[in-house]
């Protein structure tokens, strides 16, 4: 479950791959919080490579989103994979974690 840095500084970009589950939650939390720390005012996390998402993963996405807001950073989740979308729909969290402006219907 690696977090990859695609671009640093201004408009930093990251990508999450594989399982976003409790098995990796501990290491991932640290990595994500660190990513928030080094990023600029706006950052994007690409979720297209996430093929499994559980409650622990959802909590992390919520936490990072909230933490970003607290730090005054604009955090956008993009490229939601099918696995992510199905969980967000189940929990009705598309509004919170969906960043729908950036995922037009056509891309699904």
């Amino acid at each position: 479950m690696p977090l990859t840095t695609l671009a640093k500084g201004e408009g930093a970009q990251f990508r999450l791959d594989g399982e976003l589950t409790i098995f990796h939650a501990a290491s991932l939390k640290d990595a994500l919080i660190a990513a928030l720390g080094e990023g600029g005012p706006a950052l994007t996390i690409d979720l297209s490579g996430v093929d499994e998402l559980d409650t622990a993963g959802v909590q992390l996405l919520l936490l990072v989103k909230r933490e970003a807001a607290r730090l005054g950073r604009a955090l956008i989740y993009s490229g939601h994979s099918a696995a992510v979308i199905s969980v967000l729909e189940l929990l009705d969290l598309a509004g919170t974690l969906g960043d729908p402006l950036l995922i037009p219907n056509a891309s699904r």
Binding site: I22, A25, V58, Q59, L63, R66
Partner: peptide, 20 residues
């Protein structure tokens, strides 16, 4: 209808990623 309540999610520093 479902509402997911994140209210109990504590501060990032103390949040235990393995707890629900």
């Amino acid at each position: 209808h479902i509402v997911t309540l994140p209210d109990a999610l504590p501060d990032a520093l103390v949040m235990d990623p393995e707890a629900c």
